[in-house]
Protein backbone atom coordinates (compact mmCIF):
# COMPACT_ATOMS: atom_id res chain seq x y z
CA UNK A 1 0.00 0.00 0.00
CA UNK A 2 2.70 2.47 0.95
CA UNK A 3 4.62 1.69 -2.25
CA UNK A 4 1.59 2.45 -4.34
CA UNK A 5 0.93 5.64 -2.49
CA UNK A 6 4.54 6.81 -2.58
CA UNK A 7 5.26 6.54 -6.27
CA UNK A 8 2.80 9.12 -7.61
CA UNK A 9 3.98 11.56 -4.95
CA UNK A 10 7.59 11.13 -5.90
CA UNK A 11 6.74 11.60 -9.54
CA UNK A 12 4.78 14.69 -8.76
CA UNK A 13 7.93 16.15 -7.16
CA UNK A 14 9.85 15.82 -10.43
CA UNK A 15 6.90 17.16 -12.35
CA UNK A 16 6.89 20.30 -10.27
CA UNK A 17 10.60 20.88 -10.87
CA UNK A 18 10.19 20.81 -14.65
CA UNK A 19 7.07 22.86 -14.48
CA UNK A 20 8.67 25.35 -12.10
CA UNK A 21 11.72 25.82 -14.35
CA UNK A 22 9.40 26.34 -17.32
CA UNK A 23 7.21 28.79 -15.47
CA UNK A 24 10.25 30.72 -14.25
CA UNK A 25 11.87 31.04 -17.68
CA UNK A 26 8.65 31.95 -19.45
CA UNK A 27 7.65 34.18 -16.53
CA UNK A 28 10.95 36.06 -16.81
CA UNK A 29 10.30 36.82 -20.47
CA UNK A 30 6.73 37.84 -19.73
CA UNK A 31 7.92 40.14 -16.95
CA UNK A 32 10.53 41.72 -19.24
CA UNK A 33 8.01 41.99 -22.07
CA UNK A 34 5.51 43.77 -19.82
CA UNK A 35 8.24 46.00 -18.41
CA UNK A 36 9.09 47.29 -21.90
CA UNK A 37 5.61 48.76 -22.12
CA UNK A 38 6.38 51.17 -19.27
CA UNK A 39 10.15 51.40 -19.02
CA UNK A 40 13.24 50.89 -21.17
CA UNK A 41 16.89 51.56 -20.25
CA UNK A 42 17.41 53.59 -23.43
CA UNK A 43 15.46 54.88 -26.36
CA UNK A 44 15.63 51.80 -28.64
CA UNK A 45 16.73 53.66 -31.77
CA UNK A 46 18.87 56.29 -30.11
CA UNK A 47 22.63 56.14 -30.67
CA UNK A 48 23.56 55.99 -27.04
CA UNK A 49 27.10 54.72 -27.17
CA UNK A 50 30.06 53.95 -29.37
CA UNK A 51 29.77 51.37 -32.10
CA UNK A 52 30.07 47.71 -31.16
CA UNK A 53 30.97 48.39 -27.57
CA UNK A 54 31.46 45.42 -25.28
CA UNK A 55 29.52 44.80 -22.10
CA UNK A 56 29.73 47.60 -19.56
CA UNK A 57 27.71 48.98 -16.68
CA UNK A 58 26.10 51.47 -19.02
CA UNK A 59 25.38 48.89 -21.73
CA UNK A 60 24.96 45.44 -20.14
CA UNK A 61 25.42 43.51 -23.36
CA UNK A 62 27.11 46.26 -25.37
CA UNK A 63 25.92 48.16 -28.42
CA UNK A 64 25.29 47.30 -32.04
CA UNK A 65 27.17 48.67 -35.05
CA UNK A 66 25.10 51.86 -34.99
CA UNK A 67 25.75 52.38 -31.28
CA UNK A 68 22.26 51.42 -30.07
CA UNK A 69 21.90 49.65 -26.73
CA UNK A 70 21.56 45.88 -27.27
CA UNK A 71 19.94 45.15 -23.93
CA UNK A 72 17.08 47.49 -24.80
CA UNK A 73 16.60 45.63 -28.06
CA UNK A 74 16.74 42.28 -26.28
CA UNK A 75 13.97 43.40 -23.92
CA UNK A 76 11.80 44.54 -26.80
CA UNK A 77 12.62 41.24 -28.50
CA UNK A 78 10.99 39.41 -25.57
CA UNK A 79 7.80 41.36 -26.10
CA UNK A 80 7.82 40.76 -29.85
CA UNK A 81 8.51 37.04 -29.41
CA UNK A 82 5.71 36.64 -26.87
CA UNK A 83 3.30 38.66 -29.00
CA UNK A 84 4.05 36.56 -32.06
CA UNK A 85 3.89 33.31 -30.07
CA UNK A 86 0.58 34.18 -28.44
CA UNK A 87 -0.93 35.60 -31.61
CA UNK A 88 0.17 32.69 -33.78
CA UNK A 89 -1.06 30.10 -31.28
CA UNK A 90 -4.38 31.94 -30.89
CA UNK A 91 -4.90 31.98 -34.66
CA UNK A 92 -3.59 28.44 -35.12
CA UNK A 93 -5.79 27.18 -32.29
CA UNK A 94 -8.93 28.91 -33.56
CA UNK A 95 -8.55 27.64 -37.12
CA UNK A 96 -7.13 24.26 -36.10
CA UNK A 97 -9.68 23.41 -33.42
CA UNK A 98 -12.57 24.46 -35.69
CA UNK A 99 -11.37 22.32 -38.58
CA UNK A 100 -10.53 19.43 -36.26
CA UNK A 101 -13.98 19.41 -34.66
CA UNK A 102 -15.61 19.73 -38.08
CA UNK A 103 -13.60 16.74 -39.34
CA UNK A 104 -14.50 14.68 -36.28
CA UNK A 105 -18.19 15.23 -37.04
CA UNK A 106 -17.95 15.10 -40.80
CA UNK A 107 -19.22 12.30 -42.98
CA UNK A 108 -16.62 9.73 -43.83
CA UNK A 109 -15.94 11.23 -47.23
CA UNK A 110 -15.36 14.77 -45.95
CA UNK A 111 -13.36 13.49 -43.00
CA UNK A 112 -11.02 11.54 -45.28
CA UNK A 113 -10.60 14.56 -47.53
CA UNK A 114 -9.83 16.85 -44.59
CA UNK A 115 -7.45 14.34 -43.03
CA UNK A 116 -5.54 13.95 -46.30
CA UNK A 117 -5.35 17.73 -46.79
CA UNK A 118 -4.02 18.17 -43.26
CA UNK A 119 -1.41 15.46 -43.77
CA UNK A 120 -0.19 17.20 -46.93
CA UNK A 121 -0.04 20.56 -45.13
CA UNK A 122 1.84 19.02 -42.21
CA UNK A 123 4.37 17.52 -44.64
CA UNK A 124 5.50 21.07 -45.53
CA UNK A 125 7.80 22.68 -42.95
CA UNK A 126 6.04 25.31 -40.83
CA UNK A 127 8.56 27.94 -41.87
CA UNK A 128 8.02 27.30 -45.56
CA UNK A 129 4.25 27.77 -45.26
CA UNK A 130 4.77 30.89 -43.15
CA UNK A 131 7.18 32.32 -45.76
CA UNK A 132 4.63 31.62 -48.46
CA UNK A 133 1.90 33.44 -46.56
CA UNK A 134 4.16 36.43 -45.82
CA UNK A 135 5.25 36.55 -49.45
CA UNK A 136 1.61 36.54 -50.51
CA UNK A 137 0.82 39.57 -48.33
CA UNK A 138 2.08 42.92 -49.65
CA UNK A 139 4.36 44.09 -46.87
CA UNK A 140 6.23 42.26 -44.17
CA UNK A 141 4.89 43.32 -40.80
CA UNK A 142 4.44 41.93 -37.34
CA UNK A 143 0.80 41.21 -38.15
CA UNK A 144 1.56 39.32 -41.34
CA UNK A 145 4.16 37.22 -39.52
CA UNK A 146 1.62 36.34 -36.82
CA UNK A 147 -1.07 35.40 -39.33
CA UNK A 148 1.42 33.43 -41.41
CA UNK A 149 2.65 31.42 -38.45
CA UNK A 150 -0.89 30.92 -37.16
CA UNK A 151 -1.99 29.43 -40.45
CA UNK A 152 1.13 27.30 -40.63
CA UNK A 153 0.52 25.90 -37.14
CA UNK A 154 -3.20 25.30 -37.61
CA UNK A 155 -2.80 22.05 -39.57
CA UNK A 156 -1.07 20.29 -36.69
CA UNK A 157 -3.65 21.56 -34.22
CA UNK A 158 -6.46 20.45 -36.54
CA UNK A 159 -5.09 16.95 -36.88
CA UNK A 160 -4.64 16.56 -33.13
CA UNK A 161 -8.09 17.99 -32.39
CA UNK A 162 -9.70 15.63 -34.88
CA UNK A 163 -8.15 12.56 -33.27
CA UNK A 164 -8.86 13.67 -29.71
CA UNK A 165 -12.44 14.67 -30.49
CA UNK A 166 -13.14 11.37 -32.21
CA UNK A 167 -11.93 9.55 -29.13
CA UNK A 168 -14.31 11.55 -26.93
CA UNK A 169 -17.27 11.24 -29.29
CA UNK A 170 -17.49 7.47 -28.86
CA UNK A 171 -17.83 7.76 -25.09
CA UNK A 172 -21.11 6.81 -23.44
CA UNK A 173 -21.38 10.22 -21.81
CA UNK A 174 -21.77 11.71 -25.27
CA UNK A 175 -24.67 9.35 -26.00
CA UNK A 176 -26.08 10.20 -22.59
CA UNK A 177 -25.84 13.90 -23.46
CA UNK A 178 -27.70 13.24 -26.71
CA UNK A 179 -30.46 11.30 -24.97
CA UNK A 180 -30.57 14.14 -22.44
CA UNK A 181 -31.54 16.41 -25.31
CA UNK A 182 -28.28 18.35 -25.66
CA UNK A 183 -27.60 19.72 -29.14
CA UNK A 184 -24.32 18.96 -30.91
CA UNK A 185 -22.90 22.49 -30.46
CA UNK A 186 -23.68 22.22 -26.76
CA UNK A 187 -22.06 18.79 -26.56
CA UNK A 188 -18.91 20.19 -28.19
CA UNK A 189 -18.84 23.10 -25.77
CA UNK A 190 -19.51 21.26 -22.52
CA UNK A 191 -18.16 17.77 -23.16
CA UNK A 192 -15.75 17.61 -26.10
CA UNK A 193 -13.65 20.75 -25.63
CA UNK A 194 -13.14 20.41 -21.85
CA UNK A 195 -12.06 16.80 -22.31
CA UNK A 196 -9.57 17.45 -25.09
CA UNK A 197 -8.32 20.71 -23.58
CA UNK A 198 -5.57 19.25 -21.32
CA UNK A 199 -3.84 17.52 -24.24
CA UNK A 200 -4.45 20.45 -26.56
CA UNK A 201 -3.00 22.94 -24.09
CA UNK A 202 0.26 20.99 -23.93
CA UNK A 203 0.35 21.07 -27.71
CA UNK A 204 -0.35 24.80 -27.73
CA UNK A 205 2.64 25.34 -25.45
CA UNK A 206 4.85 23.37 -27.86
CA UNK A 207 3.42 25.31 -30.82
CA UNK A 208 4.20 28.52 -28.99
CA UNK A 209 7.85 27.47 -28.82
CA UNK A 210 7.81 26.62 -32.51
CA UNK A 211 6.23 29.96 -33.36
CA UNK A 212 8.88 31.88 -31.41
CA UNK A 213 11.69 30.14 -33.27
CA UNK A 214 9.90 30.44 -36.60
CA UNK A 215 9.36 34.17 -36.04
CA UNK A 216 13.10 34.57 -35.38
CA UNK A 217 13.75 32.70 -38.61
CA UNK A 218 11.33 34.90 -40.54
CA UNK A 219 12.93 38.04 -39.11
CA UNK A 220 16.37 36.69 -39.87
CA UNK A 221 15.29 36.31 -43.48
CA UNK A 222 13.84 39.83 -43.47
CA UNK A 223 10.23 38.57 -43.56
CA UNK A 224 9.38 39.44 -39.99
CA UNK A 225 8.66 42.67 -38.18
CA UNK A 226 10.26 45.63 -40.00
CA UNK A 227 13.13 47.60 -38.36
CA UNK A 228 11.58 49.83 -35.68
CA UNK A 229 10.62 46.59 -33.90
CA UNK A 230 13.59 44.78 -32.48
CA UNK A 231 13.33 41.08 -33.07
CA UNK A 232 15.88 38.51 -31.94
CA UNK A 233 16.01 37.06 -35.43
CA UNK A 234 16.84 40.43 -36.95
CA UNK A 235 19.39 41.12 -34.21
CA UNK A 236 21.08 37.84 -35.10
CA UNK A 237 21.06 38.76 -38.75
CA UNK A 238 22.52 42.21 -38.08
CA UNK A 239 25.20 40.80 -35.80
CA UNK A 240 26.22 38.23 -38.38
CA UNK A 241 28.79 40.46 -40.09
CA UNK A 242 30.48 41.40 -36.85
CA UNK A 243 30.24 38.09 -35.05
CA UNK A 244 34.06 37.82 -34.67
CA UNK A 245 34.68 41.39 -33.53
CA UNK A 246 31.60 41.69 -31.27
CA UNK A 247 30.33 38.17 -30.53
CA UNK A 248 27.99 39.41 -27.80
CA UNK A 249 25.70 40.90 -30.43
CA UNK A 250 24.95 37.40 -31.70
CA UNK A 251 25.28 35.46 -28.45
CA UNK A 252 22.82 37.59 -26.46
CA UNK A 253 19.77 37.27 -28.76
CA UNK A 254 20.70 33.60 -29.26
CA UNK A 255 20.54 32.98 -25.53
CA UNK A 256 17.30 34.96 -25.23
CA UNK A 257 15.70 32.90 -28.00
CA UNK A 258 16.90 29.57 -26.65
CA UNK A 259 15.87 30.39 -23.07
CA UNK A 260 12.32 31.20 -24.12
CA UNK A 261 12.09 28.12 -26.35
CA UNK A 262 13.44 25.86 -23.60
CA UNK A 263 11.19 27.51 -21.03
CA UNK A 264 8.11 26.91 -23.14
CA UNK A 265 9.11 23.29 -23.76
CA UNK A 266 9.75 22.67 -20.07
CA UNK A 267 6.37 24.19 -19.34
CA UNK A 268 4.70 21.91 -21.88
CA UNK A 269 6.54 18.89 -20.54
CA UNK A 270 5.63 19.75 -16.96
CA UNK A 271 2.00 20.23 -17.92
CA UNK A 272 1.93 16.91 -19.73
CA UNK A 273 3.45 15.04 -16.78
CA UNK A 274 0.94 16.67 -14.50
CA UNK A 275 -1.97 15.63 -16.70
CA UNK A 276 -0.58 12.08 -16.94
CA UNK A 277 -0.27 11.95 -13.16
CA UNK A 278 -3.85 13.17 -12.76
CA UNK A 279 -5.01 10.52 -15.21
CA UNK A 280 -3.18 7.75 -13.37
CA UNK A 281 -4.71 8.86 -10.09
CA UNK A 282 -8.22 8.94 -11.48
Amino acid sequence: MSDVAASPNRRRGIVSLTLMAGIMLVGLHIAIGLLTLVWLPYEPNAFTGGRLEGASLAHWVGTDRLGRDLFTQLMIGSRIALTVGLGAVAIGATIGVSIGILAAFASRWLDDALAATLDILIAFPTLLIAMLVVAASDTASLGSAIVALGIALSAIVARLTRILAKRVLVMDYITAARTSGSSWPKIVAIHVLPNIWPTLSVNFALQFGLAVIAEASLSYLGLGAPPPNASWGRMLQEAQGTVYTAPLGAIAPGIALVSLAIGVNLLADGLRARIDAARTLS
Partner: peptide, 23 residues
Amino acid sequence: MRQFRRQAQIVFQDPYSSLDPRQ
Protein backbone atom coordinates in the same frame (compact mmCIF):
# COMPACT_ATOMS: atom_id res chain seq x y z
CA MET B 1 -38.06 14.25 -29.65
CA ARG B 2 -37.86 16.93 -26.97
CA GLN B 3 -41.00 15.53 -25.35
CA PHE B 4 -39.74 12.00 -25.86
CA ARG B 5 -36.28 12.64 -24.33
CA ARG B 6 -38.01 13.73 -21.17
CA GLN B 7 -39.86 10.44 -20.99
CA ALA B 8 -37.17 7.93 -21.93
CA GLN B 9 -33.69 7.79 -20.45
CA ILE B 10 -30.84 5.29 -20.46
CA VAL B 11 -28.25 3.82 -18.11
CA PHE B 12 -25.14 2.38 -19.73
CA GLN B 13 -22.99 -0.62 -19.02
CA ASP B 14 -19.67 1.08 -18.34
CA PRO B 15 -19.92 3.42 -15.34
CA TYR B 16 -16.51 4.82 -16.23
CA SER B 17 -17.24 6.05 -19.73
CA SER B 18 -20.80 7.15 -19.05
CA LEU B 19 -19.89 10.07 -16.79
CA ASP B 20 -17.93 13.03 -18.16
CA PRO B 21 -14.72 13.04 -16.07
CA ARG B 22 -14.43 16.81 -16.22
CA GLN B 23 -17.85 17.65 -14.88
